[in-house]
Design a protein around this nucleic acid. Structure first.
Length: 485
RNA sequence: CGGGACGUAGCCUAGAGGCCAAGGCGUCAGCUUUGGGAGCUGAAGAUCGCGGGUUCGACUCCCGCCGUCCCGACCA
């Protein structure tokens, strides 16, 4: 059969789509910009969601659910907020066959409807902190959509917290950023840079936005999660006050933070290759697949050999699929499970059986090894750990390799003019440079190169001295610039 | 929302005004097979994206719309 997946080097966008569609993660919907998440894609989301939910609860948060329909007037209460979302709102104007008195918006995010309730729920410092998360769908009428990366409707979680002091709210903001960072690296094997957004890139309504940024294989940046310090903006807009320990009436301080189904897109674009999806073992619906190879009358014996091994693997708690289906050839199955991203494949046939061995194949490197069948379960478990670690390290090495320290404007322009080199959609990667802090400077670079300020890495702000790589003014920050999704 | 490309069976492609729309993959049945997407035989499967128009005749030409992808402006 013909090659199903377009090579990354030929057309990166098409490669990504080929994987999403061929690995049956998602499909198009009759409504423009919306997507159907297919069972295999949803299984990945569920694993991701469950682990994140566990980490939220471990840090003291509880789940709740707020409605999808929000009165238009709520959005308008926070000026910057409504301005930021107005262009992408979907609005419900009719209900029950009649025009509504007030249009309702499909939530693009839930700050407003949540803070409307917080006003009632928060009276005293004893009601704080309030640490609520919700898992929900949101709608943003995007002009240009891409499966998982940007769709008109997507699934996400949004945490909304209220605190007594600015310091506590900012600590919460940073705590959740760290939850995202560690989750991305430990669970998704997605190396990220944690940092602060510039004013022009921050969330509409936030005082400060923190982000985790990942580098995809085409060297573009992808914002994988954000955590916002909201100050008292929403508390003031929705008049949420509490009586402090000193007996004074004060507005509460807030944070909000979220990650979405976009993470599934990030996973695909970070780890996968021209043979298909590559999944970290933590997220794979099945960690290991066994493909038996029959020859002549060896079938019953080979099947039994495979079944025994499957049982042994399961007894270690591993997620195992025994692909004993007879209608497809072994070669077909090898390719198919590679397309699906299963981390480890075990091949076993009459020759292996006679020798008491099996063949183990790693999805991440393609390496094969032959081991004694009794040793296989322990070795598989070991391999899964190695694969998980290798995916993270491989992606991190790629990012480091494609991150360059830039000192001058000319260097910067040269860095981002590499378009077309290497992969079809290549960019220079991450440019790390000193920056004066001016929005004009940032906008100028964007106009010339499409590169935006992704973040100011939090661990790289010590000892800033020198001049802005863009304009030569005294530098205030060290920032990462890149083209992005 | 602008510019470009494309839309023919589940998927990919041929047909470029003229008889019954062609082939490959996949699907189904049977046989034969199985160490990297096997083989043979047979079968099913298409309002040619939708709507108008030109024409004796439209998958083919014209107009409009819808959708997908790519490139721009905007965004998780």
């Amino acid at each position: 059969m013909a090659e199903k997946i377009t090579s990354r080097s030929v057309d990166y966008s098409q490669w990504y789509l080929d994987i999403v569609l061929n690995a049956k993660l998602a499909d198009y919907s009759p409504v423009k910009g919306c997507m159907v998440i297919r069972p295999r894609g949803y299984a990945i989301w569920e694993r991701l969601r469950d682990e994140l939910d566990r980490r939220f609860k471990a840090t003291g948060h509880v789940n709740a659910y707020f409605p999808m329909l929000i009165p238009m007037s709520f959005l308008k209460k926070e000026a910057e907020h409504v301005e930021g979302f107005a262009p992408e709102l979907a609005v419900v104007t009719h209900g029950g066959g009649e025009e509504l008195d007030e249009p309702l918006v499909l939530r693009p995010t839930s700050e407003t409807i949540i803070w409307d309730k917080y006003r009632d729920w928060i009276q005293s410092w004893r009601d704080l902190p309030l640490l609520i998360n919700q898992w929900a769908n949101v709608v943003r009428w995007e002009k240009r959509t891409r499966l998982f990366l940007r769709t008109a409707e997507f699934l996400w979680q949004e945490g909304h917290t209220a605190h007594e002091t600015s310091k506590e709210a900012e600590e919460e903001t940073l705590r959740m950023l760290e939850v995202y960072r560690s989750f991305a690296e430990e669970f998704l094997a997605l190396p990220v840079v944690a940092g602060v957004k510039s004013d022009s890139e921050k969330f509409a309504g936030a005082v400060r936005t923190y982000t985790i940024e990942a580098m995809m294989q085409d060297r573009k940046a992808l914002q994988a999660g954000t955590s916002h310090f909201l100050g008292q903006n929403f508390a003031k807009a929705f008049d949420v006050k509490f009586q402090s320990r000193e007996g004074k009436l004060e507005h509460v301080w807030a944070s909000s933070w979220g990650v979405s189904t976009r993470l599934v897109g990030a996973l695909i674009m970070t780890h996968s290759d021209d043979k298909g999806l590559v999944l970290p073992p933590t997220l794979a619906p099945e960690e290991v697949v066994i493909v038996p190879i029959f020859k002549g009358d060896s079938k019953p014996a080979v099947l039994a050999y495979g079944e025994r091994l499957a049982t042994a693997l399961k007894s270690l708690g591993l997620r195992v699929v025994f692909d004993s289906d007879e209608s497809n050839s072994p070669g077909w199955k090898f390719a198919e499970w590679e397309m699906r991203g299963t981390p480890v494949r075990i091949e076993l046939g009459p020759r292996d059986m006679e020798a008491g061995k099996v063949v183990l194949v790693r999805r991440d490197t393609g390496e094969k090894e032959i081991v004694a069948v009794e040793a296989a379960p322990a070795r598989v478990r070991e391999l899964l750990g190695l694969i998980q670690a290798n995916l993270l390290e491989r992606a991190r090495a790629f990012r480091v390799e494609n991150t360059k320290s830039i000192g001058t404007r000319d260097e910067m322009l040269a860095f981002f003019s590499k378009e077309g080199a290497g992969t079809a959609d290549a960019t220079g990667g991450f440019a790390e440079a000193l920056w004066c802090g001016s929005a004009e400077c940032e906008a100028g670079l964007k106009a010339e190169t499409k590169a935006t300020l992704r973040c100011m890495p939090m661990d790289r702000q010590e000892g800033i001295s020198g001049t802005c790589a863009l304009c030569g003014a005294p530098a205030k920050h060290r920032a990462i610039f890149s083209r992005s999704y």
